[in-house]
Amino acid sequence: MSLDTATVRRVAALARIRLPEEEVARVQAELNGILGWIEQLQAVDTEGVEPMAGGTPEGIAAMPMREDLVTDGGIAEKILANAPDREGAYFGVPKVVE
């Protein structure tokens, strides 16, 4: 599968990464190189194979459930301390509603 320039622009938009027009061709070539290489997986017979979704080795107990309790909170100042822009106890962003 080879990506055309429209798909490259769409993927960049989905990823929320600004892609200047003059970089589209280079990025397209790089992505197609990698996608061409991973294409070889299509040759593997995976009929009836259950996908491995996590990193836990097989035969090891599944993820545990915990009590549904509040374990955190009341640390707004700590959380806001790294904000590039804040207004009061909120993160500041450009106006989104006219």
């Binding site: 997986l41 299509q42 593997v44 194979v49 259950e50 996908p51 491995m52 080795p57 097989e58």
Partner: peptide, 13 residues
């Protein structure tokens, strides 16, 4: 891609 890779990952394991 993704589902296929997870299946091949299961075969590697």
């Amino acid at each position: 891609y993704y589902l296929k890779a997870q299946k091949v990952r299961a075969l590697i394991a």
